[in-house]
């Protein structure tokens, strides 16, 4: 993350920091009063959400102490390593608690409002007070953007984790017989997923000493050149490991599409349905077929 970019976007200059420091010295003694009023506002405005985020006294006290520290840092207005780290931490905490950005940002707005009021009460004779408060808001709003940015990054990471977990679950390679593995592929196959499938397929072939691997693609939405390319590569890699791959479940329209695309499937073994694939697999694996054998 480029922190300088935030400064540029919010047109925050060194003079703004200087101004925040000037008024910050006057405001710091009121920190406890400030935190109390901020949390009173949040309790009122967030209602039930507030209860969810702070279910007991301990969690509330923890949050308040974090707020206290964060705001004291803010009043010192040092754009240093510690400051940035602590803002990242705030963003992470908000992501973990799944606090809605609108709740965070409105509370931020209220906080800046409270500080402005306190400034007029505590330092009525301060020179250039409106200007100092203007800087205060500028830096405060930039900080809001910074925290929300980190928040959305973390949320993105959580989604990526979940989708990885889903991918794991969507490659259920099953040993259906001695030496025969099967994987039904369902949905849309993109490069990352194809890579994933290939890796798990080869691992399982090695582990289970598979003679035949059946890849059933009847549930795949689209077989385009990229997917076909992946299928060919999987077949080749499996063959190098001494395993024979059968791609089953090619529907008439998929077969036609592959031909139209001009894909050379080479010696990749394909079948229209799973039954044919099983028959070939049993033959290869030397399984005697007594049921349904012709």
């Amino acid at each position: 993350m480029n922190y300088e970019e935030f400064k540029r976007l919010y047109e925050v200059s060194e003079a703004d920091y200087e101004n925040v420091r000037k008024i910050g010295v006057k405001l710091a003694p009121a920190i406890n009063d400030f935190v109390e009023r901020l949390y009173a506002y949040m309790r009122e405005a967030l209602g039930y959400e507030f209860e969810i985020h702070f279910p007991d006294e301990a969690s509330l006290a923890r949050a308040q102490s974090l707020s206290r520290r964060a705001w004291l840092e803010f009043l010192e207005a040092k754009w240093d390593e510690t400051y940035i780290k602590s803002r990242i931490r705030i963003g992470e905490v908000h992501a973990q608690l799944q606090i809605q950005p609108r709740h965070y940002l409105s509370s931020m707005n209220k906080a800046l409002d409270l500080w402005s009021q306190l400034a007029y009460t505590l330092a009525p004779n301060q020179k250039d007070l409106p200007k100092l408060i203007e800087s205060f808001w500028r830096v405060g709003q930039m900080e809001g953007a910074l925290v929300v940015d980190i928040y959305s990054q973390r949320t993105g990471e959580i989604i990526a984790q979940q989708s990885r977990a889903l991918t794991d679950m969507s490659t259920p390679i099953t040993a259906i017989w001695d030496g025969i593995l099967m994987l039904p592929v369902v949905g849309i196959v993109d490069s990352r997923r194809a890579q994933d499938i290939m890796q798990r397929m080869l691992e399982q072939i090695a582990e289970k000493r598979a003679i035949v691997f059946i890849l059933d693609i009847s549930g795949v939405a689209v077989v385009d050149t990229a997917v076909a390319n992946h299928l060919i590569r999987m077949t080749k890699a499996a063959r190098l490991m001494g395993s024979y791959t059968i791609v089953s479940g090619l529907s008439p329209s998929v077969a036609q599409t592959i031909v139209e695309l001009g894909i050379e499937v080479g010696d990749m073994k394909t079948t229209g349905n799973l039954q044919d694939a099983l028959r070939i697999a049993f033959d290869r694996a030397g399984v005697e077929q007594t049921i349904g054998a012709k």
């Binding site: 849309i188 993109d190 939405a221 689209v222 529907s251 329209s253 599409t257 695309l261």
Partner: peptide
């Protein structure tokens, strides 16, 4: 993936045959 889902949905809405839908989605 989203584009494929969307085009299949539209194909269904206009009553496109399954063969034509597969070709278009591809």
């Amino acid at each position: 993936a989203l584009a494929i889902l969307e085009i299949r949905e539209m194909a269904k809405r206009v009553n496109m045959s399954s063969g034509a839908t597969a070709a278009l989605a591809t």
